[in-house]
Design a protein around this nucleic acid. Structure first.
Length: 888
RNA sequence: GGGAGUAUAGCUCAGCUGGGAGAGCGUCCGCCUCACACGCGGGAGGUCACGGGUUCGAGCCCCGUUGCGCCCACCA
């Protein structure tokens, strides 16, 4: 053998060089080619701020599996990669870096700040993609994109202008979510509700012109500074007479009306609500209905503004305390109750969000969302697993306009320009030189940028060249599968869908494959703050990318969360090593031999058995993968390779390999081994690209096989061949296998030393069965450690005290009398008898049930009858053995 | 308040359209058998959360109950 394979597979070194080879050979690259069918996946662009985490590892492994699978099936597979500028995440990070140097972004100024951002992107933007390469991701790096590159910017401006012209983007004064720390608006999707322990403050306001007070409860006493009314339910008899009167707002000394509004729940609290139109979405609506004044009391940083009188400048929470204290001193604080409720926080920084009224840009959703709903309803877009549709529709049904403007600098600048002279607003793809209304040449661009997700929403087509009419767009769009976590369905998936329909007139992808979260070993979410994240790169370094990939895919169903565990990684690593060693064994035996395709007649039943099994696995695995059941497919490949190929076939075939007398048989065995190995490697390749490639190439090299490809990743995916369906051989081999298992069981339970040899006698009245055993004698002897096997159609000469193994078709006797304890053997057989009794009872009950006979399918009944016959036969045999033993 | 999940061996989880309960790890027994101790052979271990129902037949379908997390939601 020219190339010695190491005893243990070591992925280190091998992986990087194989990846390099793939890239150099341009295997990942796809061009629009009408002669082939396209298969396209767009990668969810990771943030440039990001480091590869387990979520990425899972997400990208799934995409890579699908891409490699389809590529081998002959599709022109494009996996389109790229990164996201991650507006707020990046900006916050850079601001923090600046803070360490004692400067703010304002000190730097917009232009300089953006320079910093680009520098940062240049330095770190490639980190995540190089990490993806470590995983083995076969994406087309020649086509790598960035959500803020020139093309994406063009796409963003185009979409903005189009939607604006259609009236689907507008600027308006609305209640928005404000993050006082990041100092920007955020969309509803970015608000994360957290349950917080707080209080309900019961406060009373004096009713003007009476000695009465109106008592109400609030969770946010500080907002009283912006109260402009008190509301009660119109049907509330307790307060009917007060509607229309005025109350005095203490501290501020503002007179405010008592209004009647259905929004007020009579059952809750005292049935009275203070109304702060500027700082509560409900109150804002109430205010609109009653034409109330909107008094904003907050600065952008969350401190109280001049409208708060003497509290101006104070932080919102300090003000809360101070105001409660003052009200208490005034005798207006009735009581304080403990109260826990959900508070909106910013999903990035977890600061409590302030609802306030500001002028912002919005996307009008009601019209845009319609095709997105229809598309999923009509299954033009299929969600996997299907139940994700409920979550999807829950969002689309309750959709509200999307606030897209952000008070950030890093991002796509809003293409809207205001004339300095006449105030005319112009929305344009490029900066207008003159005001279209007054002709003035000084226009100021809107300072805000767009929500990061505005550009990612266009990703499936902007990456293919849109708004240009490119060949790629025409060929690869709509894409085939989107693989992503269910956690970004609202942020991203929905927005891509409506954008695709609106801009392209077609769905962006045909299937969305959802996966769950990768949790830690205790089932907790991996997070930076908990410090329980496991670095995929460290896992790859220690166990190899193949092991990590395989671990992430097996034993988990689509859409379900999974737990990371090193034991599972080890199991996967061991599997890689198993294949490695099986291959090593096969290559060792093929050394210096020319293996040729054997005549059909030279194939032994075992050969046909494994080929037939392999053939079935090919069909099932392909089927599972096409249905996105990646975990099931992986498990089948694992079982086939480990149990059937290694534990059985290789063991069965060894005597033939070592027997140099029968060259034809040896050749048939080697041929079969190679075929099954190569086919298995191909099936496994999408999951474990590196080991499979390394072995495949070694096999090609060692055997000088010119029919093999230069890389497994461009080889053909195996297909089911009717000619390889050997059902009869499968059955006869299984008979022998169960006899082997039985003999091993007996030997183990009787404590027969493994090395102790013992002859066996196979008795069966079925000549065909005996033939099978005879044909397999070579390995049968080896597997049960019998120097000699005798075949009989009757029990002549079998001693009563021989140990017996009863299978349905035959009984195997082993004369071990001197070694065994008769009582124990009786006990063993009685246990078997008991089991058979149970089976007979069940089977008889079924077959004597008329309803079963009349309603169950024919095949099921036949199957059951066969089983019954077999049980009866075994039962008779076991009984006879027991009787024989007891006689002594 | 609404929605969608999940409950299967000691642990982590599979189980396709209903037809005799599976894997990995762990555990016990025996093996350094010339591919692999990251291994080989054998074993133990489950009223498939609970209660009903449909069916000849239910881990799987329907209804209800309980436990566990998850998502959504403007009751102050």
């Amino acid at each position: 053998m020219s190339k010695e394979l190491a005893k243990t597979y070591d992925p280190k070194g091998i992986e990087d060089s194989l990846y390099k080879k793939w890239v150099e050979k341009k295997y990942f690259h796809a061009e629009a080619d009408r002669s082939k069918k396209p298969f396209t996946i767009v990668m969810p662009p990771p943030n440039i701020t990001g480091q590869l985490h387990m979520g990425h590892a899972l997400d990208n492994t799934m995409q890579d599996i699908l891409t490699r699978f389809k590529r081998m099936q002959g599709y022109n597979a494009l996996w389109q990669p790229g990164t996201d500028h991650a507006s707020i995440a990046t900006e916050v990070r850079i601001i923090n870096t600046l803070k360490e140097q004692g400067i703010t972004k304002e000190d730097l100024g917009r232009e300089k700040f953006l320079e910093k951002c680009w520098e940062w992107r240049k330095e770190y933007g490639g980190r995540i993609t190089s990490q993806l390469k470590k995983l083995g991701s076969s994406c087309d790096w020649d086509r790598e994109r960035f959500t803020m590159d020139e093309g994406c910017n063009k796409a963003v401006n185009e979409v903005f202008v189009r939607l604006y012209d259609k009236g689907l983007i507008y600027k308006g004064q609305k209640m928005i979510n404000w993050c006082p720390v990041c100092q920007t608006t955020i969309s509803d999707a970015e608000v994360e509700y957290q349950n917080q322990a707080s209080h309900l403050w019961h406060i009373k306001y004096p009713v003007i012109g009476t000695d009465d007070y109106l008592t109400f409860a609030t969770t946010r006493p500080e907002t009283m500074l912006g109260d402009t009314a008190v509301a009660v339910n119109p049907n509330d008899d307790r307060y009917k007479n007060l509607v229309g009167r005025k109350v005095m707002l203490p501290i501020i000394n503002r007179e405010m009306p008592v209004v009647a509004d259905d929004y007020v729940d009579m059952e809750f609290g005292t049935g009275v609500v203070k109304i702060t139109p500027a700082h509560d979405p409900n109150d804002f609506e109430v205010g609109k209905r009653h034409d109330l004044e909107i008094v904003n009391i907050l600065n952008d940083d969350g401190t109280i503004n001049q409208n708060g009188g003497k509290y101006a400048g104070m932080d919102r929470y300090e003000a809360r305390k101070a105001i409660v204290k003052e009200l208490d001193e005034m005798g207006l604080l009735v009581k304080i109750e403990d109260y826990s409720h959900d508070v909106g926080t910013h999903d990035r920084c977890h600061t409590t969000v302030e609802p306030l009224v500001k002028e912002q840009w919005f996307v009008k959703m009601d019209e845009l969302i319609r095709p997105a709903v229809e598309g999923v309803k009509k299954k033009d877009i299929r969600l996997v697993p299907e139940n994700m549709e409920k979550t999807y529709f829950n969002w689309t049904d309750n959709i509200r306009d999307w606030c897209i403007s952000r008070q950030l600098w890093w991002g796509h600048r809003i293409p809207a320009y205001t004339c300095e002279k006449c105030g005319e607003l112009t929305v344009s793809r490029t900066a207008p030189e003159k005001c279209p209304k007054c002709g003035h040449d000084h226009l100021i661009q809107d300072p805000d940028t767009l929500d990061t997700w505005f550009s990612s929403a266009l990703w499936p087509f902007s990456t293919l060249g849109w708004p240009e009419k490119t060949e790629e767009l025409d060929y690869f769009y709509p894409t085939d599968v989107l693989v992503t976590g269910y956690d970004i369905i609202f942020f991203w998936v929905i927005r891509m869908i409506f954008s695709g329909y609106e801009q392209m007139g077609a769905e962006p992808f045909k299937t969305v494959l959802f996966h769950g979260l990768v949790r830690d070993e205790k089932g907790r979410k991996m997070s930076k703050s908990l410090g329980n994240g496991i670095d995929p790169l460290e896992v790859i370094d220690k166990y190899g990318a193949d092991a990590l990939r395989f671990m992430l895919i097996t034993g988990n169903a689509p859409g379900n969360d999974m737990r990371f565990s090193f034991e599972k990684v080890e199991a996967a690593r061991n599997f890689a090593n198993k294949i490695w060693n099986a291959s090593r064994f096969i290559l060792m035996n093929m050394d210096n031999k020319t293996v040729t395709k054997p005549d059909e007649s030279d194939l032994a039943p075992v050969d046909r058995w494994i080929l037939s099994r392999m053939n079935r696995i090919v069909r099932e695995v392909t089927d599972n993968m096409e249905k996105y059941e990646l975990g099931v497919a992986a498990a089948k490949i694992y079982d086939f390779i480990w149990s059937e190929l290694c534990d059985w076939y290789i063991e069965m075939v060894k005597p033939r390999l070592y027997n140099t007398d029968d060259v034809a048989s040896q050749n048939a065995a080697l041929y079969t081994l190679k075929k099954v190995l190569v086919t298995s490697l191909k099936l496994l390749h999408p999951y474990m690209p590196f080991v499979t490639e390394e072995i495949y190439c070694t096999v090609k090299e060692e055997t000088g096989d010119n029919d093999m490809d230069e890389s497994i990743m461009i080889s053909d995916w195996p297909v089911y061949e009717a000619a390889l369906d050997y059902a009869r051989d499968e059955k006869s081999i299984e008979t022998i296998m169960s006899a082997v298992k039985g003999v091993r069981n007996v030997r183990a339970s009787m404590n027969v030393p493994p090395k102790r040899e013992a002859d066996a006698t196979v008795v069966s009245d079925d000549n065909e069965v005996l033939e099978s055993f005879k044909t397999g004698e070579l390995y049968f002897k080896a597997l049960i450690n019998a120097p000699r096997v005798i075949y009989q159609t009757d029990k002549k000469g079998i001693p009563d005290d021989a140990v017996s193994v009863v299978t349905g078709d035959a009984t195997v006797y082993i004369p071990l009398a001197e070694l065994i304890d008769i009582d124990e053997e009786i006990a063993r057989l009685e246990k078997e008898e008991k089991r058979l009794e149970g089976e007979l009872k069940r089977s008889n009950a079924m077959l004597s049930n008329e309803k079963f006979l009349s309603k169950a399918p024919e095949s099921k009944i036949a199957e059951e009858k066969e089983k019954l016959a077999s049980y009866e036969k075994m039962m008779a045999e076991v009984k006879e053995r027991i009787a024989g033993l007891k006689k002594d």
